[in-house]
Amino acid sequence: MSMLEKLQPIFREIFDDESIIITKQTTANDIEDWDSLTHINLIVAIEKHFNIKFALGELQSLQNVGEMLALIEEKVKKNE
């Protein structure tokens, strides 16, 4: 299963929308409920699911889901 496929159910649960399909190009503007609080919930869910920790400020420069994926993959690899 690709990292994108692993992220898909997390997005659906956090945004409470089974129809969400994310791609590497998806941004916060593409998902109506992606506000500051759901963003926090999403990040926390990803940290818990992949057993990783993002650093303070590390997330602000991310432009889309693809960049988020790259960061997750990098952190998961470090854990291995």
Binding site: H39, I40, I43, V44, E47, K48, K53, F54, G57, L59
Partner: peptide
């Protein structure tokens, strides 16, 4: 139970 330092959220 859980602390996310990147977001400041605690569970």
């Amino acid at each position: 139970e859980f602390i996310s330092e990147s977001t400041g959220q605690v569970e």
